[in-house]
Each structure stands twice: as C-alpha cells, then as structure tokens.
Design a protein around this nucleic acid. Structure first.
Lengths: 222, 222
DNA sequence: TCAAAAGTGTTCAGCTTACACCCATGA
DNA sequence: TCATGGGTGTAAGCTGAACACTTTTGA
C-alpha cells in the first residue's frame, strides 16, 4: 500500500432497535463482564459502508432485510487514546417477529437486547451514540412510516399506538385522534382477520406496500 | 504503523452556501479547465472531522466562525476506481457580508461561487452531494433559524423573506403571514435603524442571541 | 399626487384536541 | 350482566392561507 499519510481506522457501528415486551430494546455485544458495545467492526477492503453495516447486522441478529440508514459519523480524536477512530453509525430497525430467537435473553450468546431506558455500562461513547440514535428515531417515526418496521406484518391499531408511545416515551396519545389520522393518511389496509384480546377482538391491519407517505411541506418556521 | 488491513482514505468535503445577488451560491474549487470540485481534503493525523472541515473552510473562504454541520458520509466503493474513498460531507453557511472578497467572481483565484441552480461539470459525485446538501438546507431553514446564518447581522424582513424564497426556490410566500409567524416566534428584535429602499424605509432587525427556537413536537404523522 | 415598497387586520376553512360515547367479546 | 378493551362522533379552539387594506417615503 502507498500510504504516505497516516490513514485513520474506519469502523461501522450499528444501533439496532426492536420492540419487545412493551419496551424499546437495543442490540448490544458483550466486551467483558462489565462492559457492552454496539455491534460493529472494520469496513472490509472493497465493501461499501452500508454493506459493512448490513454484514454486522446479519452476523449478530441473523436478519438481513431490514430498515438500515446512516445516522452520523463520529470522529473526534479524543474518542480513544493514541489512535484515531472514525465510526460511521447506522440505525437499523427490526421487528421482533423476524428475529430467529425472538428478543428473549439468551445468556449463552454474547449478544443481548437491552432496554434503552436502562442501559448497562458501555464502551467509549456508545452511550451517547445510542442517545443520539434514539432522538433521531423519535423524529423519524413522526414524519415517516418507520415505526412499521418494528411491528409484525399484521398488527392492531392498539399495537401501533403502543409502539409510538413506547418509542416516544409518552403515554398521552389520544386513541381516537391517533386512529383518525391514520385513516386519513390512507397508508393502512385492513385484513379480514382479528386478534384475540381481553375484550372485543381487534381488527388486524397491514401497511400498504403502495402507500406513498407524502410528507407535506411543513413550514414550522417561519 | 501497524496496518494489517487495508485502511481506506478518508476525506472531508464541505458544501459552503452563501446568498448573493439574489441567488444561492456554492463554493467550488477548480480542478482543471472543465471540472470543478467541492473544497475538501484529507483529515490530518490528530485532527477531528469537524476540525478538518473548518480548516478547509478557512483555507478557501478566509472565514472561520461559521455554521458548520455534518451531513452525511459517502463511501460506496464505486465512487472512484481502484481505490476506496470515504468522504465525510459537511454543510457550511456563511453570510456574504462576512466574506473578505464578497462573493464577486475573482477569476484569478481557483475558488469561485456558483449558483446552485446552474452548476458546472463536477468531480465524481459532487453534483449529487450538492443536491443532497440543498435538500437538507431546505428542511433545516424550515425548522430552525439556520437561514439567519446567511444574512448580515442586521436585515429587513423583506431580505429575510427573500432568503427563504431563494433557498426554497418558491416565490409564493405570503408577506403578511411570514411576518406574523416571525413576530409570534419572538426570535427577532428590531434595531432603531432603517434601510433605504425604493419606497418606505424598512425597519432593520437582528436575530435575538438569547432566542430559544423551541421546535414544538410536530406529530405530522401519525 | 403617484409609484414603490413597508407593514397590518380580518376572514374563512381546515385541522387539532379533548372527551364522551357505543360496540363486541368472554367470564 | 359486568369487565375489558375496540372503535367512533363531535364541539371548541387554534392555526394557516388568502387577500384587502393602510402607511411612509422619494420622484
């Protein structure tokens, strides 16, 4: 290699979220007894960044076709002493129903799902990275249909609303208004099946594949 | 250096916008007679990414204190043949009033300001990068006060509205409603000075340093 | 006194919010 | 028939779009 200049190490890290047990969970890999880290690693020679992120994801979760999006690149020199480390961070969303082992704790493996609301000690700045990813996820589900990526193929409106409330950490969504907005958005189609619940059975819906979620120009400001 | 794996080249590129002559302009550096590129270069050994972007900016524009924000990292292997190139792209906004030479064309220098609405042939995927930056800028000015970074310290409401209309490429903003929204946002303070115009003089305003532009939770969707 | 540009008020439609109500099922 | 959760309708209030209007300057 012709490397006159000092080339920095480049990694990808992936913040993988899933919804499980009425909680938002993030995929973490054990470093040692006390410390955890995000799934991640070096980018291979002829690999794209997204490709590398996807590889990490498949290795750790066994799932390949997922919502995957680049978030931010962290690269301040103080992240790690005596070395430069650049991390390109990706956000991934996986429905728990698509995880081979579900999101149950499998203590044998070095990978585990942790509630974002109760994180263990984390490597380097991975805690800050997860916070950032969570913030971005919260924005994302409000102006796009990203939340559907965290639900099974078919779901009830209550389950969808729960997903929003868990992610936003906000219990105050009004049921009637939530449903009305979805009806008007026209992005759901009902299936002629029902989910058994404690009371009246709930209609099942699915996301319309052909839905064009046209985010109207917003003009919050000015 | 201990480099068992092939380390990729990492660059920063900066998309610098300014407003000038009723047009949105981007800073470009000449590659050769026919081709232009974004200001950018390799990241130095112990330099942060943002630091490197700022260095590029000072070298090319002479301005240091600016709005500077990371946008995206481009790193597909097909960007450049027989080599891997990762570009961390930053967005910068500079008010033309702060440019040492203004934004007039200075043909002697290799740096020139080009209208984003009439770009010359560009290196690699720099055209796509500028498009992306413009899209992000348009979102940004609608939910933050970023547009002020492109205006002089003191400005008239008309100039502010013009800035929005130029950037959004949309002439249909209503004057009365635009002003009402700004008044209610409470982020401007009037100076007791006026700008001479063709007709009635226009009051000058400035951005309130203490303004907390609280972007209210939006809930477009659901 | 007229043109040009600054600056304001008012209406109406549509959307959001809050809340009350009815429905279907199992125990 | 009661508890549980699913599902809907509507009035009050707020917001945004459209547009007409007044004010201040220079020529």
């Amino acid at each position: 290699m012709e490397t006159p200049i000092a080339l920095p190490h480049v990694e990808v890290d992936v913040v993988v979220f899933t919804l499980c047990q009425h909680d938002l969970k993030v995929c973490l890999v054990r470093v040692d007894d006390a410390i955890w880290q995000l799934p991640g690693g070096v980018v291979a020679k002829h690999e794209g960044l997204e490709e590398a992120a996807l590889r990490q994801l498949v290795e750790k979760t066994g799932v390949s076709a997922v919502y995957l999006q680049q978030l931010y690149t962290f690269g301040t020199p103080d992240r790690i002493t005596h070395q430069r480390l650049i991390s390109v961070v990706y956000l991934a969303l996986i429905a728990a129903s698509r995880l081979p082992a579900g999101c149950a704790d499998t203590p044998a493996l070095s990978m585990t799902w942790h509630s974002v609301y109760a994180l263990p000690p984390l490597l380097l700045d991975h805690g800050a990275i997860i916070d950032y990813a969570l913030t971005r996820l919260r924005y994302k589900i409000e102006y796009s249909a990203a939340a559907f990526e965290l639900l099974p193929e078919e779901f009830t409106l209550r389950e969808l609303q729960d997903a929003y409330m868990i992610i936003l950490n906000d219990r105050t969504l009004d049921k009637a208004n939530f449903r009305k907005k979805l009806r008007e958005a026209g992005i759901l189609e009902s299936v002629s099946r029902y989910r058994e619940t404690g009371g009246r059975p709930a209609k099942l819906y699915r996301f319309r594949k052909d839905a064009q979620l046209e985010v109207k120009a917003r003009r919050f400001f000015p």
